[in-house]
Amino acid sequence: MKTQEELTEIVRDHFSDMGEAATLYVQVYESSLESLVGGVIFEDGRHYTFVYENEDLVYE
């Protein structure tokens, strides 16, 4: 099982292909040891929320 830090790095790496991230945040109260819930805000103003669970990243 991966730590939240490892899950955060996986998510950060995925979003790095989409541009320069200004902020990546984790909603600790919705996350667990198995999943990471949060969002990313890019330098150009785009904002996505995400759920990373079971090696699957879903974002909108």
Results as ranks from 00 to 15, higher is better:
Thr49Tyr: 11
Asp56His: 15
Asn54Lys: 09
Val58Gly: 04
Val28Tyr: 14
Glu20Cys: 14
Phe50Leu: 03
Leu24Glu: 03
Phe42Pro: 00
Thr8Tyr: 10
Met1Ala: 11
Asp56Gly: 13
Tyr48Thr: 00
Thr8Glu: 14
Glu30Asp: 14
Asn54Arg: 07
Val26Phe: 07
Glu34Gln: 15
Tyr25Lys: 04
Lys2Ser: 05
Asp44Asn: 03
Ile10Asp: 02
Phe15Lys: 00
Glu60Trp: 14
Leu24Asp: 02
Tyr59Met: 09
Val51Lys: 10
Leu33Pro: 12
Gly45Arg: 00
Tyr25Leu: 06
His47Cys: 12
Ala22Ile: 14
Arg46His: 03
Ala22Phe: 15
Thr49Asp: 02
Ser32Val: 09
Thr49Phe: 10
Tyr48Met: 04
Tyr29Lys: 01
Gly39Gln: 10
Asn54Ser: 06
Glu5Trp: 09
Leu7Lys: 02
Ser35Trp: 10
Met1Val: 12
Glu53Arg: 10
Glu55Met: 10
Leu57Tyr: 03
Phe50Ile: 02
Phe15Trp: 04
Ser16Ile: 09
Leu57Trp: 06
Phe50Asn: 00
Ser31Cys: 10
Val11Ser: 02
Glu55Gln: 12
Phe15Glu: 01
Asp44Ile: 07
Thr3Ile: 03
Ile41Gln: 03
Leu33Lys: 13
Ser31Trp: 11
Gln27Leu: 15
Glu5Cys: 12
Glu5Gln: 10
Val11Ile: 10
Val28Trp: 14
Arg12Leu: 13
Glu5Leu: 08
Gly19Ser: 05
Thr49His: 11
His14Lys: 12
His47Ile: 07
Ala22Met: 15
Ser32Asn: 09
Val58Gln: 11
Asp17Gly: 14
Val11Gln: 02
Val40Met: 03
Leu24Met: 08
Leu36Tyr: 06
Glu60His: 12
Leu57Asn: 01
Val51Thr: 09
Gly39Ala: 11
Glu6Met: 10
Arg46Gln: 05
Tyr48Gly: 01
Asp56Tyr: 14
Leu7Cys: 09
Glu30Met: 11
Gln27Arg: 06
Leu7Gln: 02
His14Tyr: 15
Asp44Lys: 00
Ser16Gln: 10
Glu5Ser: 07
Met18Ile: 08
Lys2Val: 07
Gln4Pro: 05
Leu7Asp: 01
Gly39His: 12
Ile10Ala: 05
Glu20Ile: 14
Lys2Asn: 05
Arg46Ser: 06
Glu53Trp: 11
Tyr52Ala: 01
His14Ile: 14
Asp44Gly: 02
Glu20Trp: 11
Thr49Arg: 06
Val28Gln: 11
Ser31Leu: 07
Glu43Pro: 11
Val11Asn: 02
Leu7Thr: 04
Val40His: 00
Tyr29Val: 04
Lys2Pro: 03
Tyr52Arg: 00
Leu7Ala: 02
Glu53Ile: 13
Glu5Ala: 12
Ile10Gly: 01
Leu33Cys: 13
Leu57Gly: 01
Asp17Tyr: 14
Thr23Phe: 14
Phe42Val: 01
Gln4Arg: 09
Glu34Ile: 09
Gly39Lys: 08
Glu43Phe: 07
Val37Met: 09
Ile10Arg: 06
Glu60Lys: 11
Lys2Gly: 04
Ala22Glu: 07
Tyr52Cys: 11
Lys2Glu: 02
Val51Ala: 06
Glu20Met: 13
Gly39Thr: 11
Glu6Thr: 06
Ser35Gly: 06
Glu6Gln: 11
Gly19Leu: 05
Gly39Met: 14
Arg46Asn: 02
Glu6Ser: 04
Met18Val: 05
Ile41Trp: 11
Met1Thr: 12
Leu7Ile: 10
Ala21Asn: 13
Gln4Thr: 05
Lys2Met: 08
Tyr48Asn: 01
Gly39Glu: 13
Glu20Phe: 13
Ser16His: 09
Val40Asn: 00
